[in-house]
Write a protein that binds this DNA or RNA. Structure first.
Lengths: 246, 246
DNA sequence: TAGATTGTTAATCGATTAACAATC
DNA sequence: TAGATTGTTAATCGATTAACAATC
């Protein structure tokens, strides 16, 4: 399927991490009927610098038109393809506590290429119950039902995370999103990304503390990671209620 | 309170982002009765390289003893102080959908220096209800009750996030953790960090796709961001059930 | 053609790693 | 003293920014 010209471009890790932001912005623009957009405007919508955006996109190839900009639909397609979103990914959520429960019901995955298809727990009191339209199963059942490649979302308490990760890996899982606030160890070839909510708050606390102390020196708190604080004047559509989760 | 020697050390952003990981590992070690630890062992528990750990700690000062290691209690204290965790931070969660609900009930904040004290929504059907022992209030009430410095956790749907952020900022909030999958714009001096769940999955999908294609070239997927995939042989305590969230 | 905007090259900046001298 | 381990300096690496030539 891959042609000779498909020599695998190396895409910098920092760029990969931003592609989803561009895609998100493009989809939103597309939904509003925007068909062509400049790097300047797109970068603003994505919360990055235009020069960085162009550099990032240059790693994918040349999909823009000088003097004009980028075709929103075309660029969405190309980024989707690059991210591997042309087929849907199946997700298993492991650990049905508060967080696992919320993630199971979270609507934000389906719209972005992921189907939550399995909910796993080891507590007999939870197994068999229905959450967000799915039956909670145990690992043995997951092994039977999930021969294909899946992404595991770990939402167990920390003391159970390593064991759960081991079981997932034994099933062939090679991508894990870890919400448990602990380090998990996996074999080579398995990728782990982590989201630690309290860690994020602690980083904010650090800056807030520094900020108050150093008030008079009038620093600017332009965080590296968050990025979004950087851009000014981005789209400002408002209104409506927010009873439902993001 | 600050002495002349308290010339404000600049701590690199990358270091700040890792301090919470060190603290987490130290607390866990301390709870197990470990009193002294080498940079080598601590780095493994935290999922980083020992050389990086020492470099990070050197920004805080010299709290280790050559030939011996670090005092677990002392280092915990110093990092806590550096992060501003010697007083508890108050958190307001904005948006009581699935995710906001789960975050309100999430036990992992309290143990790490944060008190969730306010739950905010604008839906009259939700305001006044009780979640995790707290009454849901509206912004007007929050304005009355929260004169002090607070951290806002945004868990609204994307279309409502900017407005909610504006209202929070108007109340004096200067630190925002944004779970809504959109860019929000804030004035200088306000810091935003973001957590986008679908984005994390898309980054994993990218690597998984690459991995399968490039199988024969036997790459190693050592992600920059996740870091935890790097260390091998870290602590492996197991067992017990995981009915509850992390 | 003139104006706009991309894609790329070069310069800067920051973060990681390696090496090792200091010192317990 | 000998062995271990920190803290720091220098080298490498990668990511960001600036500048501008290519070109629609």
């Amino acid at each position: 399927m891959s042609t000779a010209s498909a020599a695998r471009r190396e895409i910098p890790e920092a760029t990969v991490a931003r592609l989803p932001l561009y895609l998100r912005a493009l989809r939103s623009l597309g939904a509003r009927g925007v068909e062509v957009i400049s790097s300047e405007a797109l970068s603003e919508a994505a919360g990055v610098r235009s020069t960085g955006l162009r550099k990032d996109l240059s790693h994918l190839g040349s999909y823009g038109v000088r003097g004009v900009g980028y075709d929103v639909g075309r660029l969405s397609e190309e980024i989707s393809r690059e991210l591997g979103l042309h087929h849907d990914w199946s997700v298993a959520i492991i650990g049905m506590g508060n967080l696992g429960h919320a993630l199971a019901a979270y609507g934000g995955f389906a719209t972005r290429g992921f189907s939550v298809r399995w909910l796993v727990d080891e507590d007999p009191a939870v197994i068999g119950t229905e959450i967000a339209g799915l039956q909670v199963i145990d690992f043995a059942d997951l092994a039977k039902q999930a021969p294909e490649s899946i992404i595991a979302v770990l939402a167990t308490p920390p003391h159970a995370a390593q064991q759960a990760a081991d079981q997932a890996v034994a099933l062939g899982v090679r991508s894990i999103l870890n919400f448990a606030p602990c380090v998990i160890t996996v074999p080579d070839g398995v990728e782990v990304r982590k989201v630690d909510l309290a860690t994020e708050l602690q980083i904010l606390a650090f800056h807030e503390q520094r900020g108050r102390d150093g008030e008079l020196s009038s620093r600017h708190f332009v965080s590296k990671d968050s990025g979004s604080a950087r851009s000014i004047g981005a789209t400002k559509e408002r209104r409506t209620s927010w009873g439902e989760a993001p």
